[in-house]
């Protein structure tokens, strides 16, 4: 459900803005400027704004703080001590339990998640950029139909596709292999749609004409000109695909029965189920669910922080066109 669009360019402005009647040229406001002198925003409303933002900030961060604190506790302290402050520091003991569980299968889940999200999203982005370019800058028979199918498929519930796909994959003997999760990750109509929008915004047709006149081949134009110019948009597509794959639940749950191919999400969910049913087991399931949850935050948060500039400056639905 997390879907967005971004401008192909690295700016806050919509890609194609036409000046409306009497509209003044839009200005990009720098980070530090204040409203013009003489029309100051009243102090009282500035304070109200800050209070509101701080409240929202607390709401956003407090649950994560709870996770951070709780990951350092054992089960007894989880129940008996204040959830928002530290007790006996048991993080390393929890981590040891996590990596000892079934010969370190958690590490396997981590690598699986990275494989599905990483490789899956790289291929997803590559296919989408090529298809988006083909749809944006060429005419060919059947193009309208393809566009219609791509956009229409946004409305199809994923369950309607995943179940028959499961049956097809099981006929091909692919269920319970990494391919059963990877192949659906490769293909995203929404990525193609975004790639088309970015290409329209970033690649002027005149540029392609000039390159052709200079004798550049089509593949070379795509790889050396188009891919470079839509790199920001491509990064956004990669990021969205990565997040979607990392969060995926229905697809891996349907396709993967054997624990060795699971994702972190699926593994932690399974531990949660165990923590409710196997109360007497030797493993402290509640503690490892929480510490495991904290570990599974790290890769996703790291990718997002590293790629921060793409989603924080590029995101704008204003650039999406029908």
């Amino acid at each position: 459900m997390t879907i967005l669009a971004a401008t192909g360019k690295d700016s806050d402005q919509p890609a194609a803005s036409e000046p409306g009647p009497g509209a003044v040229r839009k200005q990009r406001r720098g980070q530090g400027d204040e409203p013009a002198v003489g029309v100051q925003v009243p102090r009282s409303s500035r304070i109200l704004v800050l209070v509101g933002l701080v409240l929202f900030l607390i709401y956003s961060i407090a649950p994560v703080w709870w996770l951070l604190v709780s990951a350092t506790k054992n089960e007894a302290d989880l129940i008996n001590t204040n959830g928002l402050w530290f007790a006996e520091f048991n993080l390393f003991d929890n981590l040891r339990q996590i990596f000892a569980y079934e010969d370190g299968i958690f590490l396997r889940w981590t690598l699986n998640s990275l494989l599905y999200a990483g490789v899956g999203s790289v291929v997803n982005t590559a296919l989408a950029l090529a298809a988006g370019y083909g749809l944006a800058r060429f005419t060919f028979p059947g193009k309208k139909l393809i566009l219609g199918l791509v956009i229409g498929s946004f409305l199809i519930p994923y369950a309607m596709l995943t179940l028959p796909l499961y049956l097809l994959f099981s006929k091909l003997g692919m269920v319970n292999t990494v391919w059963a999760v990877l192949i659906p990750t490769f293909i995203s109509p929404f990525s193609v749609y975004l790639a088309k929008v970015y290409t329209e915004g970033a690649i002027p047709p005149e540029l392609l004409e000039a390159a052709r006149i200079d004798g550049a081949g089509e593949v070379r134009i795509f790889l050396q000109i188009v891919v470079r110019m839509v790199a920001t948009g491509g990064a956004t597509i990669f990021l969205l695909s990565f997040v979607a794959s990392w969060n995926g639940f229905f697809l891996p749950m349907t396709m993967l029965q054997g624990a060795e191919n699971w994702t972190m999400t699926l593994g932690i969910y399974n531990w949660l189920v165990q923590s409710m049913t196997n109360a007497s087991a030797s493993t402290d399931f509640t503690a490892i669910v929480i510490a495991g949850a904290l570990l599974s935050v790290i890769p996703l948060a790291a990718v997002m922080l590293v790629m921060q500039r793409f989603w924080k400056s590029g995101v704008s639905l204003g650039a999406v066109k029908s």
């Binding site: 298809a131 060429f138 193009k143 089509e218």
Partner: peptide
């Protein structure tokens, strides 16, 4: 249609 764009290239990219 851009100048000289081969007709099937778009389909091949897609």
């Amino acid at each position: 249609r851009v100048h000289g764009a081969p007709r099937l290239s778009g389909l091949l990219f897609t």
